[in-house]
């Protein structure tokens, strides 16, 4: 991947106020690179949902973004509790979030479906007690 631009970020556990900083930075970098607005929007929405999930469910983690002329690949890796039932988690409206999370405007069971809707491919690797890695691709 000679032409790839690679961005790496740490997502900090429990820092709800700061959730979204990574997505915001990536969004502005993509804009600067001249990526079309509709693509930037898709990446921003998918990444932001994923980043918020990492903060509210998974003790933070690492986000890697690879930008090539063909696609934008986002890898969100956490060492959180894992997802017990991925199929259920993908259903719109299904949520395991606490009331405290809901009071903050999230936890409506829309996160993962939103991520899938805004990407060309989404792959979830998860192991209970070890963590989850979500890889999403948006083609240019």
């Amino acid at each position: 991947m000679e032409d790839a631009i690679v961005l790496k970020y740490q997502v900090i556990d429990g820092e709800f106020q700061r959730a979204g900083e990574v997505s915001s930075d990536v969004k502005h970098k993509l804009k600067q690179l001249g990526v079309p607005a509709d693509i930037v929007r898709k990446v921003a929405i998918a990444m932001y949902e994923g980043e918020v999930n990492m903060v509210i469910h998974a003790n933070g983690g690492e986000i890697t973004v690879e930008i090539t002329p063909e696609q934008i690949r986002m890898i969100l890796a956490d060492v959180g509790p894992g997802i017990p039932d991925v199929e259920k988690a993908m259903q719109a409206g299904y949520s395991t979030a606490s009331d405290a999370t809901r009071n903050l405007g999230f936890g409506a069971g829309m996160g993962l479906p939103n991520m899938k809707k805004n990407t060309d491919s989404m792959d979830i690797e998860t192991k209970l007690g070890e963590g989850t890695t979500i890889t999403m691709v948006v083609r240019l």
């Binding site: 709800f16 959730a19 979204g20 997505s23 969004k27 921003a44 903050l104």
Partner: peptide, 15 residues
Amino acid sequence: GLCNTQVLRTADMLD
């Protein structure tokens, strides 16, 4: 009616 930084972040993501 939600008044926290995530409203601002959401606004940013969606322009």
